[in-house]
Design a protein around this nucleic acid. Sequence first.
DNA 1: TTGTACGCGTTATCAC
DNA 2: GTGATAACGCGTACAA
Lengths: 340, 340
Amino acid sequence: MELITIKDIAKALNLSTSTVSRALRGSYEINPETKKLVIEYAEKHNYRPNPIALSLKENKSRSIGVIVPEIDNPFFSQVINGIDAIAYNRGYHVVIFQSHESYKRELINLEHLTSRRVDGLLISLSGETQSVEHLQELHQKGMPIVLFDRVSEEINTHKVVSDNFEGAFTATEHLIREGRRRIVQITASPFLSITKERVNGYIAALNKYGIPVDESLIRYCGYDLAAIEKMMEELFSGDTPPDGILTVSDRLALGCLAVLKRRKISIPEQIAMVGFTNLKAAYLLEPALTTVVQPSLEMGQRSAELLLDLIERKPSSIPPNYQTFKLYSELIVRESSVRH
Amino acid sequence: MELITIKDIAKALNLSTSTVSRALRGSYEINPETKKLVIEYAEKHNYRPNPIALSLKENKSRSIGVIVPEIDNPFFSQVINGIDAIAYNRGYHVVIFQSHESYKRELINLEHLTSRRVDGLLISLSGETQSVEHLQELHQKGMPIVLFDRVSEEINTHKVVSDNFEGAFTATEHLIREGRRRIVQITASPFLSITKERVNGYIAALNKYGIPVDESLIRYCGYDLAAIEKMMEELFSGDTPPDGILTVSDRLALGCLAVLKRRKISIPEQIAMVGFTNLKAAYLLEPALTTVVQPSLEMGQRSAELLLDLIERKPSSIPPNYQTFKLYSELIVRESSVRH
DNA sequence: TTGTACGCGTTATCAC
DNA sequence: GTGATAACGCGTACAA
């Protein structure tokens, strides 16, 4: 735990710092005895190379930046978990920033990241972000970037996403097969890639079964719980309330379930529901909730692996054609969700 | 965004690096014109001081380490949120480590932290941790440390906790006043300070109302959901099932609610329940759940403020007597929890 | 007012 | 096989 440096070792052993350095790194041919002596002394005094000095020398921080909309969101905290696992194994710091769904804060985060000299960036876009010029600029300056979950077509780099189209398609199809026809999709910011893909999957499923698309059944909604509940109340106050619901996030599912409970609308008897959710709570409390489980942990791991590969490879050997990796989202149907 | 250094500015302006440095820091008396020139150039080329070089020079990393049992736990992700807010405002990095409730991993984290040269440490102990010698050693070597939530008597430094005794006392009293007598407390690792305090609060409330303490109604339980449910099933299979429940964490509350739901035991008609919870989901899905809300965000903020004060103060001026700051936990009783 | 020299911890290069 | 030196970027004591 002591703050011992290579210089201290050199002094103590009457050697030069360069000899000590070589002994420790074992690179050059060196007198085995000297080497042994140095290594023993280092171990005894718990020598640890100063990562800051190394960073300065190598012009690398051995840290990666992560920008997420909110840490306090089960999906993202699970992703961070995955990132964390990979990064620490490979000797990297993870520095986390939150955009709080604000484009402005995303820009500020980027500024912080660059001045902190992170070696690479993992980012999931804010709900407000419509242009990714800020990322492109950074990317062109040589910063390795991997986008995950909420990505953009407009930047050419690696991306890791879940198969949102397929997830929404399967979920919608499940509802249709259970006999539902008036299926509402409750979704988030219309700017997000995940939103667009999920809406497309939903529409494709309706089309497949010849159900006309009713635009009023696609509801875009912010994350504010009160707003979600208000929208839901509205939806169920009309003459023709939905008989099926597809929600695409934890918070949306919760607001939705809360309103159903309050109105004593029972699942699955009166209405069927599928939620994209990462919250273990949801299905425990509402066993009839069919769930599209996001591969959050895996997404974090894959993204981090990709980014670290990009960072550690020489710039000239970075593959010219970036790819989008799609991870499988599982649809989990529980017995109790089948209509009695 | 460019990687421009002080040296580049000096070269471009035909000045020495020291002049540029002074101009930028504005410390020394310097020719106003030169100063203006330098600052303009710096702004134009987006100069940012290299934090790594500064760290090396000042022997400070301007980063703080945070060790939590799990990131993916709503209480801790909220605490991290609070830490984050304060730290970034004051120009510090937050480096997060997870102990995964393992003492061994806590030790490894500590090792990483020190070799990473963090300026200070915020830690909430793992469920396995019984001795804090590892922390004491580090603390005696001069590392500023603030413990939060799960603390230890055996180390003398600042601590930030919520009032667990009071929280459990109030919760238990609430149950008693609703007419419950067989109140079970379902709690976590017996080693944790929070567990002991909550058990004490529970016992004190029973004593106040002359209810004998039944040791079999204090259940220690791991975080594994399956184990929680098994324990609950056991509890409710006996001849005299509880008529009141106090759970002290989100996961325990969830496992508990899941079993009640499965056995069709209704709240509050058949059983009353209070949970320590930070999960917005819980009360939404079960409105009859009375909640002890932990001041998680505030805890993060207070802890970070304390730690940064410790770090930035000269060692000689650190107050010799460390304190434990208790934050208030609010008991939230919703209408629907009153027995009909 | 400005420039020179040094040190923070480490490694690479060159010399011995 | 080992030691001296320079360099990474910055701030500052000291010299001019």
